[in-house]
Design a protein around this nucleic acid. Structure first.
Lengths: 148, 148
DNA sequence: CCTTGACATAGAGCATGCTCTAAGGTTTAT
DNA sequence: ATAAACCTTAGAGCATGCTCTATGTCAAGG
């Protein structure tokens, strides 16, 4: 089976604009064109697209995805590089997940502080302390290396 | 104590450009200016900045941070809205963390497939199967709702 | 007095990832 | 044959979040 950009768009939910954009960037490896220059996606192309979406959704920049795709086109001798690339991104993801988990704790803490203030406010009609400002939702400095 | 943009920059690692940009966007609540119009950050301003960085690092867009800051400026009666905003973002973070964890599994699976191929390649000098392409690193469709 | 240096602003530029418009070609139906 | 309905491309535009440049003001030091 072969598909046009619009058919692929309907199957994948990716806009035709985006599909052409990916093709222009070189993310889509050698899509066949018919006599009129119209793209004809194969099932294999769809599998590539699937990998691309997976990596993109996993936070890999398009440029790096392109690197991966280009390496793949060079054949088996680039297997190691591609493998390294995937594992490196996997590690980056782990770091990012841990960073977000840390921040999740921080934000939760701040939210709870605000909630406690809100409850005091509701009970007393106004806050005993003078503000709902950051200081009162403060957390220790050590928890604040937000981008670590 | 009061600080200039450059002093704040050195303390926080945020560039003076960015600090002025945040101020221009209205993220920094009423920084004092001296007679010459020079910004004088107070410790309280630094606490606000800290909260802003926390939220930004937690993935909140600047626009939403601005909303939060503006609400704070309206006083105690916006406590509930601010509380809701924080908890909503907390929930969004949880979704995002779960999404990344799912994808972490997917990427790990793909990486391992490539590694196995690489090992076969090293043992045999070439691959028995014809490609290192996505199909061979394929995973079931159900795992592929990348942005869910 | 005048240069140096730190501050200010407005606005341009850049990177990423789309999203759309304009202009044009081909096929199909009336 | 002419309009509709597709496709194509190049390139402009948009959103986010900076980053920098150009231009100017002001205060202190030689």
């Amino acid at each position: 089976m072969e598909y046009t950009v619009h058919e692929v768009s309907q199957q994948t939910g990716i806009s035709p604009y985006t599909l052409r954009y990916y093709d222009k960037l070189g993310l889509l490896p050698g899509i066949r064109r018919d006599a009129n220059g119209v793209r004809r996606f194969t099932d294999s192309d769809l599998e590539w697209l699937d990998l691309i979406c997976c990596l993109k959704s996993a936070g890999m920049p398009l440029r790096q995805i392109k690197t991966f795709v280009c390496l793949s086109h060079e054949g088996d001798r680039t297997l190691e590089q591609r493998c390294d690339l995937l594992f490196a991104h996997r590690d980056a993801m782990q770091q990012e997940i841990q960073r977000l988990q840390r921040l999740f704790g921080v934000v939760t803490g701040k939210a709870q502080c605000y909630q406690e203030q809100l409850e005091r406010y509701r009970q007393h009609g106004s806050l005993v302390e003078s503000s709902g400002y950051p200081a009162s939702a403060k957390i220790s400095r050590e928890d604040c290396d937000y981008d670590g």
